[in-house]
Amino acid sequence: MHLILGLSIDEWAETLSAVAILVSGGSWLFKKIALDPLRLDIQHLSGQIGQQLRVHEKELADLDDRLKTHDHELDSHSVRLTRLEDHAGIKGDNEHED
C-alpha cells in the first residue's frame, strides 16, 4: 500500500471529497444568505432608478415645451414693441444718439 504524507490513496480521496463537500456547501450557503438578497436589492434599486429617470425625462420634456412657448411669446412681444416704436416714432435702444 502506498502512503503519501502518512495517508493512503483511499484516505486522501475521502479527505478531498469531504473538503469538496464542505466548500460546495459553504458556497451554496453564502449564495443563499448573501448573494441572492443582494441581487434582489440591486434589481429593486435598478427599477426605482429607472422609474425616477422616466419621471425626470418627462419633467424635462415639459420644461422644454414651456421654454419654447415662452420663447415664442418673447419673440411676439419683441415684434409688437418694435412695431409700436416705429408707429410712435420712438427710436430703439440700439439707436441712441450721444
Score class of each variant (00 low, 15 high):
83 R>Y: 00
11 E>C: 02
66 R>L: 03
10 D>W: 01
50 G>W: 00
96 H>M: 13
58 K>C: 08
68 K>Y: 00
78 S>Y: 09
76 S>W: 06
65 D>F: 02
78 S>H: 11
28 W>M: 12
28 W>R: 11
91 K>R: 15
86 D>R: 13
14 E>I: 02
79 V>Q: 08
57 E>M: 09
56 H>A: 15
67 L>R: 11
16 L>S: 11
66 R>D: 03
81 L>K: 04
40 L>Q: 12
70 H>P: 00
87 H>C: 06
11 E>L: 04
16 L>V: 15
87 H>I: 10
48 Q>A: 13
97 E>W: 13
57 E>N: 08
30 F>S: 13
72 H>N: 09
61 A>C: 05
70 H>E: 03
4 I>L: 15
18 A>L: 07
77 H>P: 00
19 V>S: 12
90 I>E: 10
69 T>C: 01
31 K>L: 05
22 L>A: 15
78 S>F: 09
72 H>W: 09
2 H>F: 14
52 Q>K: 14
36 D>Y: 14
93 D>Q: 14
33 I>G: 04
19 V>L: 12
2 H>Y: 12
59 E>G: 03
93 D>R: 14
97 E>N: 08
38 L>W: 13
80 R>I: 01
50 G>F: 00
81 L>N: 03
64 D>A: 04
69 T>Y: 01
50 G>I: 01
5 L>T: 01
41 D>A: 11
59 E>A: 14
79 V>W: 03
70 H>Y: 10
53 L>H: 09
